[in-house]
């Protein structure tokens, strides 16, 4: 997972792993929530290299979106493949995010 932060506009870009299983989901949760704690409220989640994500990972992203909603922040997903987008659509959590 790589991370780029821009302190001036409270934004952060996180590039997710190839596969997000339980362990990676736990690490991702820690990273994302610590960024929220640090005052970031504009998240860009780069899923361009992510080929697997299960509900553990989806749950982390839903948690992030809920946290951001409470501070008027946004989470934007970029680079998601068609199957990954379908997973979000099927589980009806797509509207929680902006998509590019």
């Amino acid at each position: 997972m790589s991370k780029t932060t821009t302190p001036l506009n409270h934004s952060t870009t996180i590039r997710l792993e190839d596969q997000i299983h339980v362990q990676e989901a736990a690490e991702l949760r820690e990273t994302l929530l610590s960024e929220v704690e640090a005052g970031r409220d504009q998240f860009v989640l780069d899923l361009s290299r992510t080929t697997f994500l299960d509900s553990a990972g989806l749950g982390v992203l839903v948690t992030l979106s809920k946290r951001l909603r409470s501070v008027n922040g946004t989470a934007t997903i970029v680079g998601a493949s068609k199957p990954i987008r379908e997973l979000f659509d099927l589980t009806k959590i797509s509207p929680n995010f902006k998509w590019k």
Binding site: V22, S55, I84, E86
Partner: peptide
Amino acid sequence: GMDQLLVEASISEAIL
């Protein structure tokens, strides 16, 4: 095929 991700996520889900 393209649905592989959904099927795999479901199997993982059941194990989880």
